[in-house]
Every structure is written in C-alpha cells, then in structure tokens.
Amino acid sequence: MGQKVFLGILAILILLFIASPVFVVLPLSFSDARGIDFPPESYSLRRFRDFFGATEWLNALWTSAKVSFFAILIATPLGTGMALGLVRGKFFGRKLLNSFVILPLVFPTLIYGLALLFLYRRIGIYDSELGLVLAYIVVGLPFIVLITAARFRSFDESLELTAMSLGANWWQSFFKVTLPLTWSGIAAGAIVAFIIVFDELIIALFITRIQEVTLPVKMFNSLDLDVDPLLAVVASFLIINSLILAGLAALFARVRHE
C-alpha cells in the first residue's frame, strides 16, 4: 500500500512538472508589469491592448495563419488520397509506402530545414511564403495520412461495393458514400496537421530571414534576445488556440455517422 501511495505522489509531481509551464503562462499574460512577474502582483489587460497595436506580432500571426492554411489545403486531399490508396489498394510497393510516409514525421527537422535552405537558395524561393507552404505540406502530410487511414480502415468496404453494384462509378461512390461517412476523420487529420504546422519552428528558422517571419520564429527570437512582455499574450493566445483545435479534432475523431 505504501508503495502505491509513494508511486502516486511521484507520478502526480511528474505530471505537474509536465503541465506547469503551460499554466504559468496564462496568468502572466494578464500581468500589469513589464517583464517576467510571476505570480503577477497586479492584473490588467494592458498586454492584450499592446498586442493588438503591435504590427510586427500581428504580421507574424498573419503569415503563420496564411502559410499553414494553404499547406493544409493542399496536404489534405493529397494525404486523404494517399491514405485511401494505402488502405484499399493492393499494389506493388504498398508496404514500403506505409513506412515511408511516416519518415518525414520522425526525421529531424533540423536536417530537413538545412536541405530546404540549400534547395530554396538554388531555386529562388528562399524567404518566401511559397517555400514555407511547400515545406509544410511535407510536414503535415504524414499526420493527415495516419489519421485518415485509421478512419478508412474502420470503414466498411461493402458500402462502397454496394454503391458501385447499384450503378455508381468510383467517383460517385466516393463522394456520395465514402466521403459523407469519413469526413470527420479527414477533418480531424487536417486540424491536427494544422496545429503541428502552425507551431513549427526549426524549418521556418532555416528557410526564412526577414520577409516572412512566422509566429514561432518571432517568439523564438523574442525569447532568445530579450523577453518581450507581449510574448506571454501571444503564448496564451496560442495555448487557447491549440487546445480549442485539439478538442475539435478529438471531437471529430469520435463522430460516427449514424
């Protein structure tokens, strides 16, 4: 019994250690003081007001949102198609592709960022939104493939066969039967990929310089050089944003269409 209590206390301490940084940031964003002041001595919305007047931060936010959105817009159909092909198809190289699609996910972004820096300088898209979008399609794709593939795997193939036996061609069967019954899984995949891409730092550090600063890069620079009081606001904003999106993704992942 004593062992178990000890284990429990230890586990809870570790859990608090994992979670604390997130919860420390939120109250800080309401602090009235400049600089780090935790726990805050007085609270105000001053930092929030300042944030909405800070064009640099707003620009970075806008760049991140734009780049992530377009990357996911392209990665979603690409990844969904790939997942469908991997789950349903029986073709040469399927097993290989199954593992290959995970590779970008475990591969150090440091190396990928370096390779892109090298490539983009040569083809002239260094420090551009296009460059970021192209990179983030690769980053987001594995997540979309994995999550939608799980959904397709649990999807009853006889529904598709039935639709086709009733006269629907492959496209009709996909859009009238498969898609209406799996869209929530696809949405979950897209949202997860969006969160990942939106938070991505290392690749952006490599392939951008001045023109296109994403929010994570701006945050990193602010932490590296001197701590901007607005950082807490941005962080709070991002935490809430991520949690809402993650909650949404979890919700979609559980939707069953009956």
Binding site: A11, I12, L15, L16, I18, A19, S20, P21, V22, F23, V24, V25, L28, I36, F38, P39, I195, D199, L201, P216, M219, F220, L223, V227, L231, A232, A235, L238, I239, S242, L243, L245, A246
Partner: peptide, 30 residues
C-alpha cells in the same frame, strides 16, 4: 484529469513550454 495534464502540454508549442519553464525556474522565477 491526469491524462489531460499529459495531453495539454502535448498540444502546446515547444517554445511556449520553454518560456513557461524560464518563468518558473529563472533567476527571478517563481
């Protein structure tokens, strides 16, 4: 409840978590 303590940080950017750590453990930290 405990699982959410694992999952919430999981979804939050690494920069923010590092920032939180500085706030907690820094010279003038909590």
């Amino acid at each position: 409840i405990l699982m959410s303590l694992v999952l919430i940080p999981y979804w939050v950017s690494i920069i923010i978590r590092t920032y939180g750590l500085i706030v907690t453990l820094g010279r003038k930290g909590f």
